[in-house]
């Protein structure tokens, strides 16, 4: 039954991603060409709302639905992998106009060309797992 909760949250996410137009290839191009506030406003208000939420959770030591105090993981400090990995992902984001979430939302919208994108993404994930030890971290 726990699955239902996450499926419902995912459905909400899919609807929000579609209605926000964050799944749009055109919107991503508009963003990378700095020709509208649209995507910046969306990510900006998401981060502002999110950081207020996180700050409140930390300040009041809020508990989750199961009564456990919420903890946040800190990311490790090896900036290289974030910069290099981020740049590689950024290229894929601009090409397909979709980040991993929207790829699956677009599949649900009926864009079957997302199947090769998912195939490519799994191949890329596998390649990373394979060559991980030989990459600068």
């Amino acid at each position: 039954m726990k699955a239902i909760k996450y499926i419902l949250t995912g459905i909400l996410f899919g609807i929000i991603m579609t209605k926000s137009e964050a799944v749009s290839w055109y919107r991503i191009q508009e963003m990378f060409r700095f020709q509208s506030i649209f995507m910046y406003g969306m990510i900006g208000t998401a981060v502002i709302t999110g950081s207020i939420l996180v700050a409140l959770i930390k300040k009041y030591r809020l508990k989750d639905f199961r009564g456990r105090t919420i903890q946040f993981d800190s990311k490790d400090r090896h900036w290289k992998k974030y910069a290099i990995g981020g740049s590689i992902f950024g290229m894929g984001w601009a090409l397909t106009g979709a980040c991993p979430g929207p790829v699956f939302v677009l599949l649900g919208q009926g864009y079957m060309v997302m199947i090769p994108v998912i195939g490519g993404a799994l191949a890329g994930t596998f390649a990373y797992g394979l060559f991980r030890d030989r990459l600068p971290q």
Partner: peptide, 28 residues
């Protein structure tokens, strides 16, 4: 599509996250 997908998979695992993990969760 295939190349773009590959870059998404390789890059997000290398960076340990995508837009949701870094831009939203991480920056928040």
């Amino acid at each position: 599509f295939l190349g773009g997908g590959f870059l998404i998979g390789f890059g997000t695992r290398y960076a340990g996250g995508c837009t949701s993990g870094h831009a939203i969760t991480g920056l928040s």
